[in-house]
Amino acid sequence: MTETDVNEMSFEHAMKELEQVVGQLERGDVALEDSIALYERGAKLKKRCEAKLKEAEEKVAAITLDGDGTPTGTTPVDAG
């Protein structure tokens, strides 16, 4: 099985795989070397999920509303 590049995954894909990794590690039926590789993969997946959540949060925060609560556009968010 070829592993998908974590940096190309959607939030949902990364979260689903992270749940699988955690499940395998919790069962404890994986060899030590494989556990280390799974842990490393899990760390990358966690980082990807956090980045995608931050990105979504910034997009939501950038939406401006008019007096009626209707979105009127977006305001750029300073990423720095």
Score class of each variant (00 low, 15 high):
Met1Tyr: 06
Thr2Gln: 13
Thr2Arg: 12
Thr2Pro: 15
Thr4Asn: 09
Thr4Trp: 08
Asp5Thr: 01
Asp5Lys: 08
Asn7Tyr: 08
Glu8Ser: 13
Met9Ala: 06
Met9Leu: 15
Met9Glu: 03
Ser10Tyr: 04
Glu12Gly: 06
Glu12Ile: 04
Ala14Thr: 04
Lys16Thr: 12
Leu18Asp: 00
Glu19Asn: 06
Val22Leu: 08
Gly23Phe: 05
Leu25Asn: 01
Glu26Lys: 13
Gly28Ile: 14
Asp29Leu: 10
Ala31Asp: 15
Glu33Thr: 14
Glu33Cys: 07
Asp34Met: 05
Ser35Tyr: 01
Ile36Leu: 15
Ile36His: 09
Ile36Pro: 03
Ile36Asn: 07
Ala37Thr: 09
Leu38Gly: 01
Tyr39Ile: 06
Glu40Leu: 11
Glu40His: 13
Glu40Asn: 12
Arg41Asp: 05
Ala43Gln: 10
Lys44Leu: 15
Lys44Ala: 12
Lys44Cys: 04
Leu45Glu: 00
Lys46Trp: 03
Lys46Leu: 11
Lys47Gln: 14
Lys47Val: 08
Arg48Met: 06
Cys49Ser: 08
Cys49Gly: 01
Glu50Leu: 14
Ala51Lys: 11
Ala51Glu: 12
Lys52Met: 13
Glu55His: 10
Ala56Cys: 10
Glu58Val: 06
Lys59Gly: 12
Val60Gln: 06
Ile63Val: 15
Thr64Trp: 09
Leu65Pro: 02
Asp66Gly: 03
Gly67Glu: 14
Asp68Ser: 15
Thr70Tyr: 10
Pro71Gln: 08
Thr72Gln: 10
Thr72Phe: 02
Gly73Gln: 08
Thr75Tyr: 05
Pro76Ile: 10
Pro76Phe: 07
Val77Ser: 08
Val77Cys: 05
Asp78Cys: 02
Asp78Tyr: 06
Ala79Pro: 04
